[in-house]
């Protein structure tokens, strides 16, 4: 009972904090558009994030990835991911998605017990109950909150005003500690190795965006916004699709205006 009270208090704090922060969210955006009024500041943060990656995350993840066997790295990442179970369940309920709430609850219980504090993932492996990650940013989207401006956050990387609010709420109102005593300790032990493992496993893709492209800021922004919008809607939106045939003609018109 006490835990439920605590949980609902966390949720209320979260909802309140998000209302306050969202009041600051700027400009409505059209689907498919990039709304980046803070671009010059974001680019400064991007340069600093990239420098941090170059001197720290990239080399350290290479050492970690090559020194630690894959099953060990995978287990630590599993344990870290398992800790988002209570947050997922709480947000599924806030989104009115009872099916996913049940799915994530069963998944969390199976992996925490049979999976030894989440080190293994029998829920996916043996029961077909795959990961369905969510968070308060998704809840805000379901509630109809607009995406807001694009942001690149120090260390956390690409985000939007809405996603940044979600991230803050997930951090301060995480129900984890109230339902799972060992949770915070496991989080402390596994979140860093988990980040390194992702950086190692996705090395080609991340390096391609950050170091091989002519404008890594623009590429990262596009990748983030498009994949985020896709994840939230479950499909590419028709308005979002770029029609090169239509636009080829538009460019012809623009050309005529220039010339006369």
């Amino acid at each position: 009972m006490g835990q439920i009270v605590q949980l609902s208090r966390d949720v209320r704090i979260g909802a309140f904090a998000s209302l306050v922060l969202l009041a600051a969210c700027s400009a409505p955006n059209e689907p498919g558009e990039i709304n980046d009024p803070y671009e010059s500041l974001n680019r400064v943060v991007h340069a600093s994030n990239k420098a941090t990656d170059r001197v720290f995350f990239r080399p350290v993840s290479q050492v970690y990835g090559n020194a630690v066997p894959k099953p060990v790295r995978q287990s630590l990442s599993n344990a870290s991911a398992n800790l988002s179970g209570p947050r997922n369940v709480a947000n599924d309920f806030l989104q009115g998605n009872v099916e996913d709430a049940g799915h994530n609850l069963v998944r969390f219980l199976l992996n925490t017990t049979l999976g030894v504090f989440g080190l293994f993932d029998p829920a996916s492996g043996s029961f077909g109950i795959e990961e369905r990650d969510t968070g308060f940013a998704d809840t805000l989207a379901v509630w109809g909150t607009r995406e807001g401006a694009y942001l690149e956050l120090p260390l956390f990387g690409p985000s939007t005003e809405r996603d940044a609010v979600g991230l803050v709420v997930d951090l301060i109102a995480n129900p984890l500690g109230t339902v799972f005593d060992e949770g915070p300790d496991i989080a402390a032990a596994t979140s860093f190795p988990s980040v390194l493992n992702s950086r190692f496993e996705l090395a080609d893709t991340v390096d391609g965006i950050l170091y091989d492209s002519a404008d890594s800021y623009a590429q990262l922004r596009l990748f983030y916004l498009e994949s985020r919008r896709f994840a939230l809607s479950g499909q590419t939106s028709a308005e979002n699709a770029f029609d090169p045939y239509e636009n080829l003609y538009e460019e012809v018109y623009e050309g005529l205006y220039d010339e006369f």
């Binding site: 404008d215 623009a218 590429q219 596009l222 994949s227 896709f230 994840a231 590419t236 699709a241």
Partner: peptide, 12 residues
């Protein structure tokens, strides 16, 4: 996963 190759190459 929703990321357009065309848009990405237009930017690039």
């Amino acid at each position: 996963e929703g990321i357009s190759l065309l848009k990405s190459e237009r930017a690039e």
